[in-house]
Amino acid sequence: MATLSRDDVAHVAHLARLGLTEEELTRLEGQLNHILDQYAVLAELDTEHIAPTAQTIELENILRADVVTPSLSVDEALAGAPERAGDHIVVPGIIAEYE
């Protein structure tokens, strides 16, 4: 099975938006590879013609009627927001215009 290099670990950490220290990266490289070794047993099984199971419960078409229900008040919605300006939540500016 695959082995993770330190660069791979750093790439996955970036995908997951986890800011990790050098020490954490080092420790995770070892631990993740050890865990991946445990995954290797799965390769023993021939699953080519086996259908995947995403959910064990056999439900389908669980739908709701298109009916409006009450929303939270603005203050309830924003009660936990770290930074607020008026009725908006504030985040650092996202450069979406010209490069």
Binding site: A77, A85, H88, I89, V90, V91, P92, G93, I94, A96
Partner: peptide
């Protein structure tokens, strides 16, 4: 997202859900 500049001149994005 609404892009704005706050009172301190900082570029911010305002989020409306």
């Amino acid at each position: 997202l609404i892009h704005a500049t706050d009172a301190a001149g900082r570029r911010v994005s305002l989020v409306d859900f």
